[in-house]
Simulated scan of single mutants.
Amino acid sequence: MAEEGQRLRLGRGLAALIGDMGDDDEAVVDRGRGQRRVPIEFLRPNPRNPRKTFAESDLEDLAQSIRERGIIQPIVVRSLRGLEDAFEIIAGERRWRAAQRAGLHEVPIVVVEADDRLALEYAIVENVQRTDLNALEEAAGYDKLIADFGYSQTELAQVIGKSRSHVANTLRLMKLPQSVQDKLSSGLISAGHARALLAVKDPEAAAERIVERGLNVRDVERLAREEEAVPGSGARGGRPRSEKDADTRALEQALTETLGLEVSIAAKPSAPNGEVRIRYASLEQLDMLCRALRGGR
C-alpha cells in the first residue's frame, strides 16, 4: 500500500514531495515541510539521472537568477547508505550545478526515502513535467525502468502520467541511426521529425534534407507516404523487397498446395536464414494448420 501511495503522488509531480509549494516565485522555501539547508558539497549527482545535457547558456542564466534571488524550490535528495552528510540528488541537479556557479555555500533540500526504482521514477517525472528532457533522454529513462525494474509499457505510462502510445513512440526513437539521434539531441531536428523519420526508407538522408531545406514534420510524413506508394518498397522501414528466384516461388507453390493455405517465403539474399509465413482466414483454418504441423494428432 505504501508503494501504491507513492505512485499516486507521482502523478501530481514533485510538488507532492515538497508540500505543495505552488508556483509562487516569492515562496520562502525554508518554511516548507521537511526542508533544511546543507552545505552544497554534501550533494552528489545521481548517475541514473536521465538528463545528460545541461546547456551552458541555461546554466549561466539560472546561476544569475540564483545570485539575485536564491534557490526558490528546494532540491529533492535521498540519503546515501553508509555515508554521513552525503545526499544523492533525485530532482534538481540543474539547480545544484547553477548554485555552484553562483558561489552558494548552502542549498535548500528535501530528503525523501526512495530506492533506486523510485528515485529514477521521480527524476523522470520531474523532468518530463518540466519538459527539461530531450526526447532521447526521455526514451533512455523509460528504457532503463523497463530493463532494470521490469516495467511494462502500460505500467510505465501509468506511473509517469502519459499515454501508452507516447511511451511506445518515444522508445522507438532509440532505433534511429546514431547520426539522426545526434541531430535530435542537438536540436537540429525535433521529436516530431524523429518520429516521422522512423517510417522513411533512409532516415539519415531524410534528416539531412530536414536540416538543409527546413522541412517540417508534415513534409517528412508525406515523404514516407510517397515511399510506401512506390512499387517494390517496403511499407515499414522502406526496404526494397528482393525479387524471388524461381526455386523459391516453386517451393511456395508446393507448400501452398500441400497445406491448402497461402505460404510465402522471405529469404535473405546471400544468407542461410529467412522466414516462412502462412496465412489463414479463419479459426478453422488455423486449427487445421496446427493439426498438420503436429502430424495429424
Rank of each mutant, 00 (worst) to 15 (best):
residue 218 R to V: 13
residue 255 L to A: 02
residue 232 G to T: 06
residue 247 D to S: 12
residue 274 G to W: 05
residue 244 K to V: 04
residue 270 S to L: 15
residue 244 K to I: 04
residue 276 V to R: 01
residue 216 N to G: 06
residue 243 E to F: 11
residue 230 V to H: 14
residue 256 T to L: 05
residue 233 S to H: 15
residue 274 G to E: 04
residue 215 L to G: 03
residue 249 R to M: 10
residue 242 S to E: 15
residue 253 Q to W: 10
residue 232 G to E: 07
residue 230 V to L: 14
residue 241 R to Y: 13
residue 241 R to L: 14
residue 226 E to Q: 15
residue 240 P to D: 07
residue 275 E to V: 12
residue 224 A to K: 01
residue 268 K to M: 13
residue 250 A to Y: 08
residue 253 Q to A: 15
residue 208 E to C: 08
residue 256 T to S: 08
residue 214 G to K: 05
residue 243 E to N: 12
residue 263 V to A: 04
residue 210 I to M: 01
residue 275 E to N: 12
residue 236 R to Y: 11
residue 265 I to L: 06
residue 232 G to K: 07
residue 227 E to F: 01
residue 256 T to C: 03
residue 270 S to V: 13
residue 272 P to K: 08
residue 222 R to I: 05
residue 263 V to W: 02
residue 229 A to R: 12
residue 265 I to S: 00
residue 213 R to G: 08
residue 249 R to I: 07
residue 210 I to R: 00
residue 235 A to I: 14
residue 228 E to K: 13
residue 265 I to Q: 02
residue 215 L to K: 03
residue 258 T to G: 12
residue 232 G to D: 06
residue 210 I to D: 02
residue 239 R to F: 10
residue 268 K to I: 14
residue 220 V to A: 02
residue 218 R to E: 14
residue 269 P to F: 05
residue 275 E to S: 15
residue 254 A to H: 10
residue 222 R to H: 11
residue 256 T to D: 01
residue 271 A to D: 12
residue 215 L to R: 06
residue 268 K to D: 12
residue 257 E to R: 13
residue 264 S to N: 11
residue 258 T to E: 15
residue 220 V to C: 02
residue 272 P to C: 07
residue 265 I to E: 00
residue 210 I to G: 00
residue 243 E to C: 09
residue 228 E to Q: 15
residue 227 E to M: 03
residue 260 G to S: 04
residue 250 A to N: 08
residue 276 V to I: 12
residue 240 P to N: 10
residue 217 V to G: 00
residue 226 E to A: 15
residue 265 I to G: 01
residue 207 A to N: 00
residue 241 R to H: 14
residue 241 R to P: 03
residue 235 A to W: 15
residue 258 T to N: 14
residue 222 R to P: 07
residue 237 G to N: 02
residue 227 E to P: 04
residue 251 L to P: 00
residue 269 P to N: 10
residue 219 D to Q: 06
residue 274 G to D: 05
residue 246 A to I: 10
residue 260 G to V: 04
residue 260 G to E: 04
residue 212 E to H: 11
residue 244 K to Y: 06
residue 243 E to D: 14
residue 263 V to Q: 00
residue 238 G to N: 00
residue 211 V to R: 09
residue 242 S to D: 15
residue 274 G to S: 07
residue 216 N to P: 04
residue 212 E to C: 11
residue 221 E to S: 08
residue 217 V to C: 08
residue 219 D to K: 02
residue 251 L to G: 05
residue 217 V to R: 09
residue 252 E to K: 05
residue 266 A to T: 13
residue 246 A to R: 13
residue 274 G to C: 06
residue 242 S to F: 15
residue 214 G to D: 04
residue 231 P to E: 06
residue 218 R to K: 15
residue 223 L to R: 01
residue 234 G to M: 06
residue 220 V to T: 02
residue 255 L to F: 06
residue 213 R to H: 11
residue 251 L to A: 09
residue 208 E to K: 11
residue 248 T to Y: 03
residue 219 D to G: 03
residue 236 R to V: 10
residue 224 A to G: 01
residue 225 R to H: 11
residue 252 E to V: 03
residue 244 K to C: 06
residue 243 E to H: 13
residue 269 P to T: 09
residue 207 A to E: 03
residue 223 L to D: 00
residue 256 T to F: 05
residue 239 R to Q: 10
residue 276 V to W: 07
residue 248 T to C: 06
residue 274 G to Q: 04
residue 225 R to G: 07
residue 221 E to D: 08
residue 231 P to I: 03
